[in-house]
Amino acid sequence: MIPVTRPISRIGARLIQLITFIGALGLLFRDTFAVTPRMVFVKRGRRLAWSNLWFQLYRVGVKSIGVVGLVTFCIGAILALQIGPILDDYGVASQLPGVIGIAMFRELGPLIGAIVLTGFAGASIAAELGTMAVGEELKALRSHAISPVRFLVVPRVLATIIMTACLATLSNAMGVLGGMFTANITQGMDYGVYLNATFESAKALDFVTGIIKAAVFGMMIGGLACFYGMSVRGGAEGVGNATTKTVVISIVSLIMVDLTFTFVFYTLDL
């Protein structure tokens, strides 16, 4: 190859790679949503799917409660420690609960919850499906005419959507609690006053927009983890690569999608 054209060909190859990735991921989401109604409306589909979904809800969500709760409690406390003195300097210390409440409800609750879940559940789903791919379990499903998308992807994506939304609610509460305890210790703010101020500032719309974001984040985490997991080739190394890619690409995508959402909500004045 002529050296001058090499960079162009590299850029082209990367572009093709990116388009292929987006296309393949899109097809996975299309298949996922196309077969989901079978889980609800078809008797045979229901029989396999529901027990699987309950297990995934437990594995994705219930097991993450402790970690997500602890992390977001600390985030709330850190915010109170960092912002409290500044607001105090301006004589508006009473605004602290509102600032923390809105930040948690709109932004940090869903995002931090989703990031923790990426490391906790996304990596685990990718490693699990990757190991299944290496162990020929996906081939075995296809040979029995059982769709891996319906049997494996749908329960995991639904579980991450539902549990990311639930964990965002928990994150919001824990963040507010973290801020409340810290404000009480550092500024002597009464618990009742803090909570009242929080709910006067943070409205239902703040909460709803946060939950919408969380559900989309959940879909991304579940979809990317399943996509990378099922694409594994080449044994243990492939499983490791899939897990790393899931975590890295999920976190980057979450932040980019969060930025897009925030921009859209800001533009629409929501």
Partner: peptide, 27 residues
């Protein structure tokens, strides 16, 4: 198809493995 590794679903018991295609394709 019997795969080289057996390709059993690791999270299921042997009985659940065998039952899976029957649950999927029969009533």
């Amino acid at each position: 198809v019997l795969f080289q590794s057996g390709a059993l679903f690791q999270s299921m018991t042997l009985a659940e493995n065998v039952a899976l295609p029957i649950r999927e394709h029969t009533d």
